[in-house]
Computed example of a mutant assay.
Amino acid sequence: MDSRPSSRHPRRLLLRAALVAVVAVVALVAVPGAASARGTVVPLLDCVVANDDGSWTAVFGYRNTSSSPVRIPTGPRNKVTPATVGSPQPTTFQPGTHRGAFTVTVARGAGPMWHLDGTNLAARRGTATACPSSTQMPADGNGTGAAIALVAAGLVGTVAVQRARRRAPAGRGDR
Rank of each mutant, 00 (worst) to 15 (best):
A37Y: 02
R38I: 14
G39N: 04
T40H: 05
T40F: 04
T40L: 06
V41W: 05
V41N: 07
V41C: 06
V42Q: 06
L44P: 01
L44I: 08
D46K: 00
D46H: 01
C47Y: 01
D52E: 14
W56L: 04
T57M: 00
A58S: 06
A58V: 09
V59I: 12
F60D: 01
F60R: 01
G61Y: 05
Y62P: 02
N64R: 06
T65W: 06
T65C: 06
T65V: 14
S67M: 05
S67A: 11
P69I: 12
P69K: 03
V70W: 00
I72M: 08
I72Y: 03
P73R: 04
P76H: 14
R77W: 14
N78T: 09
K79N: 09
K79P: 00
T81I: 09
P82R: 06
T84A: 10
G86Q: 09
G86V: 04
G86W: 13
Q89S: 07
Q89M: 13
T91R: 05
F93Q: 05
F93W: 03
Q94M: 12
P95W: 09
P95A: 09
T97C: 12
H98C: 07
R99C: 01
R99V: 14
R99I: 15
G100E: 10
F102E: 06
T103F: 00
V104F: 02
T105V: 14
T105S: 09
T105Y: 02
V106C: 13
A107I: 05
A110D: 15
P112H: 12
P112M: 13
M113A: 08
M113S: 10
W114L: 15
H115N: 12
L116W: 14
L116I: 14
D117Q: 05
T119M: 01
T119G: 00
N120R: 12
N120H: 10
N120I: 07
L121E: 08
L121R: 12
A123Y: 01
R124E: 15
R124L: 12
R125P: 00
T129H: 06
T129C: 00
A130H: 07
C131E: 09
P132Y: 01
S133T: 08
S133F: 01
S133G: 03
Q136H: 09
Q136T: 11
P138K: 01
A139L: 14
D140N: 08
D140V: 10
D140Y: 06
G141Y: 02
N142T: 03
G143D: 10
G145F: 04
A146G: 07
A146H: 06
A147G: 11
A147Y: 14
I148N: 00
I148Y: 02
I148A: 02
A149N: 09
A149S: 13
L150C: 09
V151H: 00
A152I: 15
A152Q: 10
A152H: 11
G154F: 15
V156Y: 03
G157L: 12
G157C: 09
T158E: 12
V161C: 10
Q162M: 11
Q162Y: 10
A164M: 14
A164C: 13
A164G: 08
